[in-house]
Design a protein around this nucleic acid. Structure first.
Lengths: 304, 304
DNA sequence: ATGAACTGTTTAGGCTAACTACATGGACGT
DNA sequence: ACGTCCATGTAGTTAGCCTAAACAGTTCAT
């Protein structure tokens, strides 16, 4: 019945170990263990279970942790309400992003944030890490996915779409397709591709192009960093799929972008949050800033 | 941010005085005052305000109290969830009713309740008291209203309809209308009525009859107790509006009931609850028992 | 007008409960 | 078999909430 203890159970569900919960909540593991034991005694049935040297939740424990989320959400709504009364969207908000989204959105967002609201940002490689898991650590997680492809569904996370960014074909200056307004999958047969490492969303679109064009693509390189890929394209070593709004950051004007038709080629950029954190006034303010900045970026590209 | 303190604020909104909150929560007024002060300091703005020798909430305080209800609801849902896991709808549930509903429903409900679930009942005169206010004191409040006429709307209470009971015209044996299957308002001109005291829901229907029949009704007596009214009708001193399912408890067979047509003559019997209490498993179980008992009563009357 | 009875508030002090520090006992990897 | 990494006991400390009693403002009656 005690909220603090329920919160502890929820943290355990999110983080998976007593030590991790203790670290995150600035307590000793002993304190966490004791409180969980009290909760279990109150509940009258086992909520956790030893597994090896670790601790996992039972079914009952998981169910209780889920309802603990609802409690946390309504509590966060209450504090947000009185923050609104004081008209203070103040405090610290933490955020992780994958590099290109951060480059595109964050400078503009931070510039327009009211003083008193501090946004702490970090970047992570989306390929190496389980992005949804970062919601335990950060208030806001910027992630990307193919349209409709929601790998983080069913985890009880709040998903806010920020923008849809087209993925164009990047060509070097002087390429035969340079003067075309747009290209189709069949135009791309025989080209050499600069690809990305496995697991990246671009991967799926390349497969779709193969299927549509009816031919295997030859993939000469596999990189994770966009600027590196672009430098290869500019050097004439191949062509690549690049996000329209974030490409050309390194060497402007020397890369030619062609929209891809006949296939849906875009990625969705979304913000992921734990539902309770999403209710905080400061967090909501940052999300709104992200949305308007995303709209601004998108509009500035469609304009010219 | 502390739930206990928010709860205290909500109790203050419900009960209106620090002393009443202290009494209800088994604390001294001093403790309540201190906690409210802490909450106010945390909030950073005044939540309460002195008025005379009492204390009233500010707008901010009321808003915060409302969101405190949401917190209480989700917390109650969590405890109900783990009660379901243990499969124990156990504990005590308190209930107030107006006399006739209690007589009609409670014996059957209590008989079918599982052992371990204790239902503590009390009755109150609906005329003397503000029934919705009892939700602060009791888990379940059985109240009645005319159809559509919801005097407790907008208080944030949970309303569960239990049954619709027709209000018939009660006649003495030997009355000229005795052999009619039903009566209309115009049939009732010139009759002497045994009325109920002001504020009773019957009152409105009597006014509606007057309007429909186009004549003033003569009201010879005004009583609150149904058995008393019936004894006057049986003695031939007048006719009265009586609830169909609960009449005739005192002297069976000597009162004749006639359905009233041409006018909507019924009362709704509902259960009122504070939304958080409505989530408790034990409370939900009692509500379900009340609903099925109400259905049983209603069916047994329509059958023969 | 003045005291009695009612409000809510202040202060001081005790007690419960959650924490830290340290020690213990399994489970895994080498 | 040893060290390491977990989670969990045990003892002592501390912080926070409560009671008790005195205090202060408002209302009402005499």
């Amino acid at each position: 019945m005690d909220v603090q203890r329920l919160e502890l159970l929820r943290e355990l569900a999110d983080r998976g170990s007593v030590t991790a919960v203790a670290l995150a909540t600035h307590r000793t593991p002993s304190a966490v263990s004791q409180q969980l034991k009290v909760l279990e005694r109150e509940a009258g049935l086992p909520l956790t279970q030893r597994q090896g040297r670790g601790l996992v939740l039972t079914d009952a424990g998981r169910a209780l942790a889920r309802s603990a989320t609802d409690v946390a959400v309504s509590l966060a709504k209450a504090t947000a309400l009185w923050d609104e009364f004081r008209n203070l969207a103040t405090g610290e908000v933490s955020l992780v992003t994958f590099p290109t989204a951060g480059q595109m959105l964050l400078p503009g967002v931070i510039k327009h944030l009211r003083p008193g609201l501090v946004l702490n940002c970090a970047d992570e490689d989306p390929e190496l890490s389980d992005f949804p898991a970062f919601t335990a650590e950060y208030d806001i997680v910027l992630a990307h996915s193919m349209s409709g492809q929601l790998s983080w569904a069913g985890r009880g996370l709040k998903v806010v779409p920020l923008m849809t960014e087209p993925l164009d074909v990047g060509l070097p200056v002087g390429h035969p397709l340079e003067d075309r307004a747009w290209v189709r999958p069949s135009d791309l047969i025989g080209e050499t591709w600069i690809g990305v490492t496995d697991g990246y969303p671009f991967e799926r679109i390349l497969h779709a192009i193969e299927q549509e064009a009816g031919a295997r693509l030859s993939m000469s390189q596999r990189f994770a960093d966009l600027a590196l890929i672009e430098s290869f394209v500019i050097a004439g070593l191949g062509i690549a799929l690049v996000p329209r709004y974030t490409s050309g950051g390194g060497q402007p004007g020397r890369l030619v972008l062609k929209p891809l038709r006949g296939i849906e080629s875009e990625r969705q950029i979304v913000a992921l949050m734990r539902p309770d954190r999403a209710e905080r006034l400061a967090v909501r303010t940052v999300i709104e800033a992200l949305q308007s900045e995303a709209a601004r970026v998108q509009q500035s590209h469609t304009a010219h």
